[in-house]
């Protein structure tokens, strides 16, 4: 038996003692071979170091989550309709979930828009197509989110999460102050009237478009940027693009009765606001917050 064969056997025997060589053969070889003797000492040291790696306890949150799931799975309530529905809604592998969420979100948002404008002004076919397109876009974004959750694809999850948070905030703002109302209010308000008169109507919609997408997008990026480190500007801009895709139908629906200049002004402003807001939100999360924590700790 040559040295290489002996060393191979010694290495595997350190891991699995049942693989040890017959003692007579081994002793005879080790007595006359310094290299193998030294190798045995090193294998043993490596094996011991592996054995002594520290063991951590299971984090309590993980333990709670697993045991809670175990309880729910076998509880009598697990067979109820409500439990089935909850399971269905929380299962990221469910292929119907993004479609359902797309339909639900579109319905809610269409309802919000209908509260502020007369949707009957639009042709029924156009309205149906816009609704279908919107549902599809939302379904794709929810699909990205579910893939992110399922496969721990943080980049996709961030992308979808940012856009969804931003569009949600945009609609909350729209409920309280729809953009056309805000433009009209500022045009009549004595303090802002001179400024609004200098801007054309398209310019006014551009400025408000920037604000109405920058704020939600910045908040969305701030909220979602927690576990996101690589290529922040590129990915924040991509998230801004996804947000714009979701926002575009809302803009066109609200602008349908207006002139083309208004539509283009709002759309261009929203696009600029979405891109700047994404980068700004990310930057705020990673620079300002970190700096303030460091300052707090330092003081």
């Amino acid at each position: 038996m040559n040295c290489e064969q002996v060393q191979q056997q010694l290495a595997v025997a350190v891991l699995d003692p049942s693989q040890a060589l017959p003692e007579q053969d081994l002793t005879a070889h080790l007595e006359r071979c310094d290299i193998c003797r030294s190798a045995l000492q090193e294998w043993t040291a490596v094996g011991q170091a592996l054995q002594e790696l520290p063991e951590r306890p299971v984090p309590p949150a993980a333990r709670r989550a697993v045991l809670q799931h175990a309880h729910q799975a076998v509880s009598p309530a697990a067979n109820s309709v409500w439990a089935w529905l909850r399971e269905w809604l929380l299962d990221w592998r469910n292929p119907m979930l993004p479609i359902f969420m797309g339909l639900l979100t579109t319905s809610v948002f269409a309802l919000v828009l209908a509260m502020h404008m007369d949707l009957s002004l639009l042709p029924p076919l156009g309205l149906t197509l816009a609704g279908a397109m919107w549902t599809g876009l939302f379904a794709v974004v929810f699909y990205l989110f579910s893939v992110g959750m399922r496969q721990r694809e943080h980049s996709w999850r961030f992308l979808a999460q940012t856009a969804l948070v931003a569009i949600g905030i945009f609609f909350v703002i729209t409920v309280f102050s729809p953009l056309p109302h805000a433009v009209r209010f500022c045009s009549n308000f004595s303090l802002t009237q001179p400024l609004m008169e200098r801007l054309s109507i398209g310019g006014a919609y551009f400025v408000f478009g920037v604000l109405y997408s920058l704020v939600p997008m910045a908040i969305g990026a701030f909220v979602a940027a927690g576990r996101y480190a690589q290529h922040p500007v590129l990915r924040s801009s991509m998230a801004g693009g996804v947000f714009m895709l979701l926002l575009a139908p809302a803009i066109f629906l609200q602008c349908a009765p207006f002139a083309l200049g208004v539509v283009l002004g709002w759309f261009g402003g929203a696009m600029l606001g979405a891109l700047v807001g994404g980068v700004l939100g990310y930057w705020a999360r990673h620079r300002l917050v970190r700096q303030s924590i460091e300052m707090y700790l330092f003081l």
Binding site: Q8, A11, V12, V14, L15, D16, A39, E42, W43, V46, L50
Partner: peptide
């Protein structure tokens, strides 16, 4: 595989 791994570790 074990042998190669142990060799690298060493």
């Amino acid at each position: 595989k074990a042998y190669r791994g142990m060799l690298s570790l060493r």
